[in-house]
Simulated assay, not measured.
Amino acid sequence: MLSYFSAELGIIACLLILIGIITKIVGQFRYEKLKGFIRGTIELHNEKIIVNENEYLIEEIKKIEVYGGDYKGKWISKHKTDFGNALSNGVENAIKIVMENEKETVIINFLQTEKREIKKAEKQLINYHKMGKIHWLKLIEILDINDYDEIQKFKSTIR
């Protein structure tokens, strides 16, 4: 009787482990759930940033910070015991606009469907840097320029 019970318990334990492994593997190919919904647009222009119907003139902005490292399909590094979905939905990006009067700060989250999609706005980002709105180190981080020689070449082209 006891050995029969032990055998059943062993089978159940093996099945539970197998179900856990299958769940973990399936989660590696699924996108995390979107908390909310995606709406609106962001337009980066040389002289202004338009968010939906709101227009922010660059001359009235004190500082712009861009966090654009997330993209749709990016593998999310999780603990090995986490059974959640492992692919990012690409919405953990933000543009923070601090106005000159410092009374208004606007944070806009945005979606990137491909890695470093923000680089498509390189011309505008360089212009914002030249106007003193984006710090040099943040600019090269946004544009994903890491190599010393590339940084020096880029520096000479924008001056």
Rank of each mutant, 00 (worst) to 15 (best):
G40Y: 01
L16C: 13
Q112E: 05
C14L: 15
W136F: 14
N89Q: 02
F154E: 02
K153G: 00
K138N: 14
F29I: 04
G10T: 15
E102D: 11
I145M: 12
G90T: 06
T105A: 15
I134E: 04
L125R: 01
D144K: 01
F83C: 11
F154P: 03
E114T: 14
I61P: 08
E150D: 09
S88N: 07
C14I: 15
M99T: 07
Y4I: 14
Q152S: 04
H79M: 11
E32I: 05
Y128I: 03
L16I: 13
E8P: 07
Y56I: 14
L143T: 03
R30F: 05
R30T: 02
A7G: 12
D82N: 15
S77W: 10
I151R: 01
L9G: 09
A121T: 06
D149I: 11
V106S: 12
L125G: 00
N109K: 08
M131T: 08
R30Y: 04
E59S: 09
K133L: 08
Y31N: 04
K130W: 06
I12M: 11
G73S: 03
E150G: 04
M99W: 03
I17Y: 12
K62G: 12
K138Y: 05
N146H: 10
L57Q: 07
D70R: 06
G84W: 06
V26S: 09
I19H: 11
Y71H: 00
L44E: 03
I118M: 05
N109M: 07
K123W: 02
I42N: 00
I158Y: 07
Y71A: 01
S156T: 10
I17R: 09
S156A: 14
K153I: 06
T157R: 03
E104R: 10
I95P: 04
E102W: 03
I38L: 11
V51E: 03
L57Y: 07
E47P: 03
E122M: 02
K35F: 00
N46Y: 08
I142M: 00
F110Y: 08
G73V: 00
I17P: 08
I118V: 10
K138D: 15
I19N: 11
I118E: 00
G27F: 02
H45S: 14
L111I: 06
N93Q: 06
G90L: 00
Q124H: 01
R159Q: 15
G36S: 03
K72Y: 01
Y4A: 10
K130T: 02
Q112T: 01
Q152L: 02
N109V: 01
N127L: 05
S156M: 14
R39A: 15
E43D: 13
F5I: 15
I134F: 01
V106Y: 09
F154Q: 01
N54D: 10
L57F: 12
S3T: 15
T23C: 14
I134D: 02
E104V: 10
K33A: 04
I95F: 00
G69F: 02
K155Y: 02
V26D: 07
R116Q: 13
F83P: 09
